[in-house]
Amino acid sequence: MALTDDEPVTVLLRQWRAGDARALDQLTPLVYDELRKRARIAFSAENAGHTLQPTALVHELFGRLVPSSVDWQDRSHFYALCSRMMRRILVDHAKARNAVKRGGKAYQVPMEIEPAQDGANLEDLLSLDRALEKLAEQDKRKAELLDLQLFGGLSFREMEEVTGLSSSTLDRDLRFARAWLKTQLSSA
């Protein structure tokens, strides 16, 4: 455990916020890899009675990569990035699983019994992703709020803190975005 390892992330975050697009390029794979790694470790941890949520991963990742002294603007950027990465990981995964189902062999197929809810979920997640894309075309900010909530697993209060929005604005925006999203999904 290297105690000083979080430094580069802090620096990259700051550069990113200051408008340096290259910093984001460097940050993205870092966060992506770290999320995958943490997930794998969390999953196979010795004492895991794993009820693992992506939430926990994002939080853990944050605690691991970013020192508490980082200010809220950097924090909010970081959470947004993590949430986006988590969404990408899950979407990539769902696509890969679908490919396997259609006869591809990206992974080996386990012989143990599959979880029952499996197939439907994968499709639903891809639909959700598409609906979020559409939402982003209309209203990027609201789509980002949903990313934070669904894939970053942030609580309402955390979102208030991270976005700097008042609770009434946040509540209104989320309600609207979720209602719209549901409409999209049911019509799809």
């Binding site: 995958r36 997930a39 794998r40 969390a42 999953f43 196979s44 794993h50 693992l52 949520q53 992506p54 991963l57 988590m86 990981i89 899950l90 995964h93 769902a94 699983r97 992974y107 386990p110 012989m111 143990e112 979880p115 809810q117 499996d118 979920n121 994968l122 639903d124 997640l125 959700l128 949903l146 909530q149 669904l150 894939f151 697993g153 979720r178 999203l181």
Partner: peptide, 20 residues
């Protein structure tokens, strides 16, 4: 939605480990 995302996350995690 959150239930859907958690289920997907779990599926992803299970998948990354080797199975019997």
């Amino acid at each position: 939605f959150t239930g859907l995302v958690s289920a997907s996350a779990r599926d992803w995690l299970e998948w990354t480990a080797l199975q019997r």
